[in-house]
């Protein structure tokens, strides 16, 4: 009986050594990278589905439970996932409050595109004051995201785990660099190709693959397509010979089809985040899928 007591006390003392670090990510893309780095030593939970537009996620009480127990919060930042802020406040978990060791904003260190200058208002639509937040669609930024998550894990984990996380992050980055060469080679014949999308989701993607972002079906971010804008876009696409429309999985297809009919463009429905389609189940397969869909469309 005495020995049993000793064993229980020992187990209690040692339990933190094998307790997994609870990582809560706002979107599955970040969860994919966090899982790659964290391996068996972390438990990763995702708050939003990859099938949804990450701008519009309704905070719900059950998500608070995940945040209450989190050691690390990993978010996109740049106001994309600001819906998580009310949940963090409700969680009472100061470990993941802004500025705490468990708070990871993956946009730190990203070279941001389309940062508005001067006065910002809704006249420009639902723009983000910190710039376009869809930065994970440039795989080079995947490396920065990984480094941010690694830094967070190192802050909240015991020193004995640091070499493990560092090695896994190095392996992820090395694999990512190899894959980037493949992805770039796959789309290199189509450098400079002009394309249109529904929302301005592909700025970072176009930057990496040297594609020419011609325009969007939305006249301004978050504003639904108008007849006048669609007519103008059709006219401009015809004039410039734009033949590709990339449509995010969560937006309606009718406007893209309407434009495609008038311009002979191809509509390619593509995932913009991990989990948006079955094929895009992690960060690598997201780009495998994207590059395959686009190259197949342009080949034909």
């Amino acid at each position: 009986m005495k020995n049993l007591g000793k064993i229980l006390v020992l187990l209690l003392i040692l339990s933190p050594l094998w307790a997994k670090i609870k990582v809560v990510c706002t979107i599955p893309t970040l969860s994919s990278i966090a899982s790659e780095i964290g391996g068996d030593k972390v438990e990763v939970i995702t708050l939003a589905s990859g099938e949804k537009d990450p701008h519009y996620v309704e905070p719900r009480p059950s998500l608070v439970v995940h945040l209450r127990d989190a050691d690390l919060l990993v978010k996109v930042g740049m106001d994309l996932d600001m819906w998580v802020d009310a949940l963090v406040d409700a969680s009472r978990n100061t470990k993941i409050f802004w500025g705490s060791p468990g708070y990871v904003d993956c946009s730190v260190g990203i070279k941001k595109l389309e940062v508005p200058k001067g006065r910002v208002s809704m006249k420009e639509g639902e723009i983000h004051v910190y710039g376009n937040p869809h930065y994970w669609l440039n795989p080079q930024n995947g490396e920065i995201i990984a480094k941010n998550i690694l830094a967070g894990l190192l802050r909240v984990s015991p020193a004995s785990d640091h070499a493990y996380f560092q090695a896994r992050a190095d392996r992820f980055i090395s694999r990512l660099r190899d894959k980037m060469k493949q992805w770039r080679a796959k789309l290199s014949p189509y450098k400079g190709t002009k394309f249109v999308s529904y929302h301005r989701s592909f700025s970072y993607f176009a930057q990496f693959f040297d594609l020419d972002y011609f325009g969007t079906l939305e006249p301004k971010p978050g504003i639904p397509p108008s007849t006048a804008h669609i007519a103008e876009l059709i006219r401009d696409m015809k004039r410039e010979g734009v033949r590709l429309i990339l449509l995010e999985t969560y937006y309606p297809r009718k406007f893209a089809d309407m434009v495609a009919k008038e311009t002979d463009a191809k509509v390619v429905v593509v995932p913009t985040a991990v989990g948006a389609t079955k094929e895009a189940h992690d960060y690598f397969s997201l780009f495998d899928t994207l590059t395959s869909l686009i190259s197949n469309a342009l080949k034909g």
């Binding site: 930042g77 740049m78 106001d79 600001m82 998580v84 802020d85 963090v88 100061t94 470990k95 409050f97 802004w98 500025g99 705490s100 060791p101 708070y103 990871v104 904003d105 946009s107 730190v108 910002v120 983000h128 004051v129 910190y130 941010n148 830094a151 802050r155």
Partner: peptide
């Protein structure tokens, strides 16, 4: 008592961004 928890080595922008 939580003051020590807010020291941060990186500088993420604040949530609910606003200039």
């Amino acid at each position: 008592q939580d003051e020590s928890a807010v020291e941060e080595e990186t500088t993420p922008p604040p949530p609910r961004g606003s200039v």
